[in-house]
Amino acid sequence: MLQVENLNKSFGSKQVLFDINFQADNGKILGLIGKNGSGKTTLFHSILKFVKYQGKIIIDGQPFSSRDYNSVGYLPEERSLMPKLTVLEQVSFLASLKGMKKDEVKSDLQDWMQKLEVKGQITDKIKSLSKGNQQKIQLIATLIHQPNLIILDEPFSGLDPVNVEIIKEVILQEKKRGATILFSDHDMSNVEELCDDVVMINNGHIVLNGAVNDVRNNFGLTRLFIRTDLNLDNVKNLPGVENVVLQNNGIYKLWLTDASYGEEIFNTLSHGKYLRTFDQEPPTLDEIFKMKAGEDNE
């Protein structure tokens, strides 16, 4: 478990993180969302004690200490390995720094490479592997020692959709193992799909924090998707409608001022008629984030 309390971080006179508070639990995945430059990497660097900070960061009840080095796994944002080493040499070296023995590494490495569908042998030079496979090897080096706290800085960037799925699968397995997992992203869809909890950060401030479902539901079912014969103007004039767009798929997307208007609209439209699409949803995380980020900028 990881607790961050009243974390403030400045570089010289420039403050980058403001009063950050959140908690990440064992066996759960926490997504850290924020635009570039909002302070995600700096937050991770603080947790890992790469930089000094003000505030408290507590791992399993105690401040970060040397005992934690072997039980964290960290995948940095900028990825590359030492091109001249073989896969085995590279992973063994990193794993040995996490306290693993050579022979353990070798058999585990082979299993991991199979699991992640890495094309290549453990005796191949890193530079002979494709970019995607190199990224996977680096993820293996992050996870091979079965860390309790896993921190992944934008783990999906630069991967094709097939590999994104493979890595999501691995992250879910690590969750089952009981690890505390944090990852950052600027693409909401991965967070929405994988995470139990979400922390949204904008210009160094937390703008939203909580369980993914709660966060969405707290905003109410203010998004309405309908398919109807009415034209745009008529849809706009339905009760409680703030805004409307006609999507490419022929479905109108309505922003309601309050979720309760849904029922009224349903009654108006369905009145003895067949209604092929009527779907009332909370806003997506992405919408919520954009709203929140917008507010914060003003």
Binding site: F50, P76, S80, P83, I151
Partner: peptide, 17 residues
């Protein structure tokens, strides 16, 4: 050259700099 490979962050997550 090691710094150039940016693997250092992984190493610093394993031991004090």
């Amino acid at each position: 050259s090691e710094k150039g490979t940016k693997i250092m962050e992984m190493i610093f997550s394993s031991m004090p700099g």
